[in-house]
Lab assay of single mutants.
Amino acid sequence: SASLEDVKTAVLGLLVILQTKLYTLPASHATRVYEMLVSHIQLHYKHSYTLPIASSIRLQAFDFLLLLRADSLHRLGLPNKDGVVRFSPYCVCDYMEPERGSEKKTSGPLSPPTGPPGPAPAGPAVRLGSVPYSLLFRVLLQCLKQESDWKVLKLVLGRLPESLRYKVLIFTSPCSVDQLCSALCSMLSGPKTLERLRGAPEGF
């Protein structure tokens, strides 16, 4: 439990870093931090981490990651405290083949985003970082199938509809809506759902 406290501190630090690096160059920093966060949550489900502190780590990670939004130009952003989304000039939600690297070039400044813009690109060529939603999407499927803490599952179920409104997140990387529907149906009809959940409301 003591070591998990250190892990929790590290994860919180990564969330803060991602919130900053999403809007700064090099964009590969945001890509790497995002991948680290998603990989860490995957390990929770792989090794069945069920301690309360592990659940709190997942809760905080999902609470942040499910706020990711994308505009029509595929640029990622996060809402501010007033709910207004600021889109990044440097990070996009497109999935890119590994051989192309985590970044790609664009020939010049991008068109203005639909929300308040981030800082304008400084040079004639900007390297865009790929932060594909499919990585998070796979972890969300694991959550629906394996999550043991009701608070975490409730958060994910509550945030998913709003995330799905931003269709560009889903359609720019390999996210299977069929698998999502299947996971939701299995969660509702499967007898093991109630068996594994802690803290579920009576009558769920």
Score class of each variant (00 low, 15 high):
178 D>A: 08
41 I>L: 12
83 G>Y: 04
69 R>Y: 01
37 L>I: 15
80 N>K: 09
92 V>A: 06
38 V>H: 02
15 L>R: 14
24 T>H: 15
167 K>S: 06
58 R>F: 00
169 L>T: 05
142 Q>T: 12
180 L>N: 00
119 P>L: 15
94 D>T: 10
199 G>D: 11
56 S>L: 12
43 L>T: 14
171 F>R: 09
95 Y>L: 12
138 R>H: 13
203 G>Q: 08
160 L>N: 01
113 P>K: 13
89 P>A: 07
183 A>T: 09
1 S>R: 03
75 R>S: 04
54 A>L: 04
17 I>L: 15
16 V>W: 08
53 I>D: 02
132 P>N: 07
182 S>F: 06
28 S>G: 10
159 R>H: 09
80 N>Q: 10
85 V>G: 05
35 E>T: 11
202 E>T: 09
49 Y>N: 02
152 V>E: 02
158 G>P: 01
93 C>T: 07
22 L>H: 02
48 S>Y: 12
7 V>K: 01
179 Q>A: 11
37 L>F: 02
24 T>K: 10
78 L>G: 05
183 A>S: 11
31 T>R: 13
162 E>M: 10
183 A>F: 04
191 P>Y: 13
10 A>M: 00
146 Q>A: 12
46 K>A: 14
127 R>E: 15
164 L>K: 00
128 L>G: 11
86 R>T: 08
69 R>T: 06
88 S>K: 02
26 P>G: 02
47 H>Q: 12
56 S>D: 14
128 L>Y: 12
28 S>Y: 11
171 F>H: 10
1 S>F: 04
44 H>E: 01
165 R>H: 08
139 V>Y: 01
198 R>W: 06
195 E>Q: 12
162 E>A: 09
133 Y>I: 05
34 Y>H: 03
52 P>M: 04
73 L>M: 12
189 S>H: 13
171 F>Q: 10
112 P>C: 14
177 V>I: 09
6 D>M: 02
13 G>P: 00
140 L>Q: 02
145 K>M: 13
181 C>M: 06
90 Y>R: 04
117 P>E: 15
106 T>G: 13
83 G>T: 04
8 K>Q: 09
44 H>W: 00
104 K>L: 12
9 T>K: 06
103 E>V: 10
16 V>M: 12
116 P>D: 15
115 G>W: 13
19 Q>C: 05
118 G>C: 12
99 E>C: 12
173 S>I: 03
153 L>G: 00
1 S>K: 04
107 S>W: 12
118 G>Y: 15
24 T>S: 15
172 T>I: 01
31 T>C: 15
161 P>V: 13
105 K>Y: 14
149 D>A: 04
199 G>K: 07
104 K>I: 12
7 V>R: 02
27 A>C: 10
199 G>M: 09
192 K>P: 06
145 K>F: 07
42 Q>P: 03
163 S>E: 05
162 E>Y: 08
133 Y>D: 02
6 D>V: 03
32 R>T: 05
30 A>F: 08
85 V>F: 15
108 G>T: 13
163 S>N: 11
110 L>V: 14
167 K>H: 08
132 P>D: 10
32 R>V: 05
81 K>G: 15
94 D>M: 04
151 K>Q: 15
27 A>E: 07
142 Q>Y: 08
115 G>H: 12
158 G>Q: 12
17 I>E: 01
12 L>T: 15
24 T>I: 11
139 V>T: 06
113 P>E: 15
20 T>K: 09
141 L>N: 04
184 L>T: 04
57 I>W: 00
154 K>R: 11
185 C>I: 12
118 G>I: 14
